[in-house]
Design a protein around this nucleic acid. Structure first.
Lengths: 328, 328
DNA sequence: ATGAAAGCGCTAACAT
DNA sequence: ATGTTAGCGCTTTCAT
């Protein structure tokens, strides 16, 4: 690998001069003549800066870490995409990691990222991840949480009001005559899922339907062992089913297709999170859409604010939309 | 930040001893007593290794770069996920980037990654990206291409046989009585898309249907300007439509939903790439599925082989499956 | 069993 | 306008 020293030697100048020129901090400190020679030689020698060395010296790695649950989930894929596009503009590279809803993995990833001297971390913490998030802060590393709030923690957060959005969506079902509504969820103890469940319970109660409240859980990561068949059959008697997350929905649908079962004609399926492709289904499908593009951009911008030192923590809640494949 | 020196000072030993212990290379060179003290103090001081410094010294960053087209595309999301899981086992962190099918962006990203001293790069090169890929090799950086082969380039490649898979899928349509088949594609000049188109053209010709060959292009990234309405109307007279990529399919379907149009009852929609959610649609849907999980893992394994020096380049083609929502 | 010292490639304060 | 120097935090060879 060719270094600045090599360029300096070849030109008979010092490596500080080369550094100044190549990092664009030369200004008028270096003559145009030398500048041009340096650029030319850098090109001739096919010089590439060593960012590791630079970062070691400057204390800024120009990298951030993004820890999501699972990048293959389209919600997180899009979130990551928009973070990356924003990071690109700011000259940052992004290390992405999947915690798979595992706390030990999450913790290990945070350590790995800190070891890599990232300038900041954007994270979707798993269940009970609060301590790890506050550890990041204690280490002096800027951090922004997305999707999962850490209640009682002073930390930047970008998300939606899960209760309000879910409540309004369920009320929508109830108002449209779907009285017998079941809920299907992953059995994860994470805030957004809990809020959405609470909203469902409250909405049912508010309509005097508390005795029709019907919650079914899918074991996370152990779908095979689960009673999905039972869930599918239980669903058949319902007017509508509320899936509290994309994954709960897609997994159920996949099993449905697999077992050659169909959904009752007039049943309405409601999902929290974008499941646009399913709008082509025979049944009525509704979903709650989060403005994930904006949320990703905001998360990065907040992180940059912290990196630049002007940080006052806050929660940023975005409005949701409910989409349906039936004209209103 | 606390450094090895701090631990050494506190213990009255030299930093080389600390380094030896903390990097696990001590063996019997350091007494158990000192070892324990070092570990303890590291914990007490909440020491974190600085991987940047380590990498600068050792010449291995333990990071790889992954450049895909667009991480929010589920195909690439899943690919990246499996690369990451494999990388995790090997102790590597992954920098992910989206080239958005842009050659200049791709080139800039390669430079950025090399600057960061990545130990290898897995890339989905955009159109005309061959020169950049061979540049990576010339820089002595291990590289594996996925999805897009670089013809005539000595470089590891993981993908599927696009021609064979598409040919067989289209022949399937023809054999099932769908004679009037149109093709819808993004107007990108990339190998997989071209091969799939060729397969369609050949299949039609082989069945004496060359005069029914009907190819419609969607301008990439400028969908608004495109004649999607025209495409949608043109599609209405067809027995079946072959979409050569996920994006072409999903965009068409989204516009369809948006414009409140529907697909003719007996029309069959065929897509190259997994579009499982659409199987719930009224129409017959077929799609060609690539074993993206294996492909991601293989890509990383090949990269590791190169990093470890035992590299002989090769192409690894995986079998595809054709899925349908109609019983056979 | 442990320490001293050199150096990875770069930056930046301080000379000249 | 350009050079000198002193590290950033770590590894590793060579002494002791």
């Amino acid at each position: 690998m060719v270094s600045m020293q090599d360029i300096a030697d070849r030109l008979g100048v010092s490596r500080s001069t080369v550094s100044l020129v190549l990092s664009g901090k030369a200004g008028s400190r270096v003559s145009e003549e030398v500048k041009n020679k340096v650029f030319q030689t850098a090109r001739d020698l096919n010089y590439h800066v060593n960012d590791l060395a630079r970062s070691l010296r400057t204390g800024a790695s120009k990298m951030i870490g993004v820890i999501v649950t699972d990048i293959s989930n389209e919600f997180f894929g899009r979130l990551t995409f928009h973070i990356q596009e924003e990071a690109k503009k700011a000259g940052y590279l992004v290390l992405t990691l999947n915690n798979n809803e595992s706390l030990p993995e999450f913790e290990g990833m945070v350590r790995a990222l800190i070891g890599k001297q990232v300038d900041g971390i954007i994270a979707v913490p798993p269940s009970d991840g609060d301590a790890v998030v506050s550890y990041i802060r204690e280490m002096g590393v800027p951090v922004v949480t997305v999707d999962r709030a850490c209640e009682g923690l002073e930390v930047d957060y970008v998300g939606v009001d899960n209760y309000v959005a879910a409540r309004s969506a369920v009320e929508g079902l109830l108002g449209d005559g779907f009285k017998n509504v079941a809920l299907v969820a992953l059995d994860l103890d994470i805030l957004p899922l809990n809020r959405r469940r609470d909203a469902y319970v409250d909405a049912m109660a508010a309509h005097g339907l508390q005795d029709r409240t019907d919650i079914r859980l899918i074991p996370f990561g152990r779908e095979e062992e689960s009673d999905l068949v039972g869930i599918l059959h239980g669903m058949r008697r319902k007017d509508a089913v509320f899936f509290t997350s994309r994954r709960a929905f897609t997994q159920t649908m996949a099993h449905l297709a697999w077992s050659k079962l169909t959904v009752p004609k007039n049943q309405c399926l409601l999902c929290f999170d974008d499941v646009q492709p399913y709008l082509t289904a025979r049944n009525e499908i509704r979903y709650v859409e989060q403005p994930v593009d904006e949320m990703g951009r905001k998360a990065f911008d907040l992180l940059m604010d912290q990196i630049r030192g002007r940080g006052t923590c806050g929660s940023y809640l975005y409005p949701t939309r409910c989409i349906s494949n039936r004209k209103k």
